[in-house]
Amino acid sequence: MTLAPYVAILGRGQGRARSLTQAEAEAAIALILSGNAAPEAIGALLMLMRMKGETAEEIAGLTAGARASLPRWAGAAPAIDWPSYAAGRTRGQPWFLAAAKLVAQAGHPVLLHGWNSHQATGASVRAALPDVGIAQVAWTEAPDALAQSGIAYVPLAGISPALMDLLRLRDVLGLRSCINTVLRMLNPGSAPIAVQGVFHPSYRELQRDASLLLNQPCLRVLKGGGGEFEHHPTKDITLHGLHNGAIWEGQTGTALTGHLRLSETDSRLSDVWNGTVQDEFATAIITSTAALVLGACGRADANHLALDLWARRHHAKAA
């Protein structure tokens, strides 16, 4: 079997080409991840899909196929799946890591996974993990890490080297592909709640609709800082997602007034977390982001809870 039939479906020409069905997309990614697809065909498939624009059925099929290729998660499922795959070119410090830590301290185990070991600007996500007490672990160690501390970060290369290779094709092709979206959708631990950041607003509905096809119970998709799930506290942003398996929409609300950009603070995550620097804007980023996730978890008065968790962050433990 080759990718040629799927490339032909997408590239037959005006009036004849069509999108892949969910089943076709799943079969195509399975073939790619098996290592039996020609590299030229892989590039053609990804770029044809990009030029056409991905459909929810295609993203759902690609995600299902990618999930089927993953090593088994050997433990209790995390409560929250929190992917981090943004390029980071327009962001500053990774404040969302502190928000994820607060959510874990509230008793909701968080699995972070990602690729971004470095950023063109701002701080490296992986380098900042120790600043808030998040361990980077191997895939096989992640279930125990979540059971012990409630939160862990696993690099994509440790989950699926084959998916990492597909992501690196951006360096070859010069453009992002549907793989960037699939990785945000991956949910390798089958968490019932998923939070996803996007940079381009149109992907909010795409990821929501694909998640609906995959029977994801709860989802929140946010146009966030640098493409991460990170709320700007002076902006009331529309959230798209799912609640109890049905389409849901809500607003983030605002925690502050003003017009600052996320990168317009010189504070460092470690200093703000440790309390050596008091930064109202950075703190509002962290607590408002945490509140959005706590709300998805069904916690009452999520905003007040996030502020309380922040105040006692150095004394709280994951329940």
Rank of each mutant, 00 (worst) to 15 (best):
M1G: 09
L3G: 06
P5N: 08
V7N: 11
Q14P: 01
R16A: 15
S19N: 11
E24M: 10
A25E: 06
A28G: 07
A30M: 05
A30V: 02
L33H: 06
S34G: 15
N36S: 15
N36T: 14
N36I: 00
A44M: 06
M47K: 10
E57S: 14
A66G: 05
L70D: 08
I80A: 03
W82M: 11
P83D: 06
Y85K: 02
A86D: 13
G88H: 05
T90R: 08
Q93S: 11
L97V: 08
L97K: 07
L102N: 01
V103L: 07
Q105V: 00
G107D: 04
S124M: 10
A128W: 03
P130K: 13
A135L: 10
V137L: 08
E141Q: 15
P143D: 13
A147Q: 14
Q148M: 03
S149R: 14
S149M: 00
I151H: 01
V154N: 04
A157Q: 09
G158N: 12
I159M: 12
I159A: 10
P161G: 13
A162M: 08
R170Q: 14
V172I: 14
T181M: 09
L183S: 06
N187L: 09
G189A: 15
P192N: 13
V198P: 01
F199R: 10
L213H: 03
L214W: 04
N215V: 02
L222Q: 08
E228Q: 07
H231C: 15
H232G: 02
K235H: 11
T238P: 01
E249S: 15
T254F: 03
A255E: 14
L256I: 13
L260C: 05
R261K: 15
T265P: 07
R268F: 08
V272A: 06
F281M: 08
A284P: 02
L292V: 03
G295W: 00
A300F: 01
A300G: 11
D301C: 01
N303D: 11
N303T: 12
H304V: 12
A306W: 04
R313P: 00
R313A: 00
